[in-house]
Amino acid sequence: MADTIISAGNLDFYYGETHALKKICLDIPEHNITALIGPSGCGKSTFLRTINRMNDLIEGVKVTGSLTYRGEEIYAPDRDVTDLRKNIGMVFQKPNPFPMSIYDNVAYGPRTHGIRAKARLDDIVEQSLRDAAIWDEVKDRLKKNALGLSGGQQQRLCIARALAVKPDVLLMDESTSALDPISTSRIEDLAMELKKKYTIVIVTHNMQQAVRISDRTAFFLLGELIEYGDTEKMFSKPADKRTEDYITGRFG
């Protein structure tokens, strides 16, 4: 199996009194798509956000245990969080392009990381839009406002924006749940393509999506990791009764 890129060991997470993640142990392999599933409020998004420390902004949170990215503690006191977020990008549920041109949306990240040369930025923008499978649709209107794109195009633009800073890992939190079936299937195809270059972790409420695109699936329930393993096996022969009941729609 592929090398582990992100590893949680007895990871606990608290929002004040709320114990949102309980002793999570989970190794995420490189160049795989890992799906996080489970009923609402079970801690999927919390886990995803601990990986690039998006939870840091919330008041009163506490993290204990170990969480490493390429062997180094994500919550080490001397960790450069900007650099971490450059390596571990995120795509959200609702497409959230900035109210600026398509070009500037994609160039935004590289610019904040100090890239100014026009030719260099042009290259990055084109490559990112190509990787996000939206280049052909927007190449003639790069200066147009991104908000004029369809929802599915906006989401692929957000993926391009995330790719522009050359990340290593892409976190996607229900990134297709607001999209129509065609846009959803384009993003799914895209994810399958992107895993050759990146490692992808998705949160999804769509069981069939997890089956279609993920290599491994993690099932969370009430802050605990109940079962984690090969997606095909999990959906044909789950080991835990609770996993079975959830994926077959008997609760949740």
Binding site: F235, S236, P238, T243, E244
Partner: peptide, 9 residues
Amino acid sequence: QQPVARDLR
């Protein structure tokens, strides 16, 4: 139903 697990089997 796009069955999974026991249902699929």
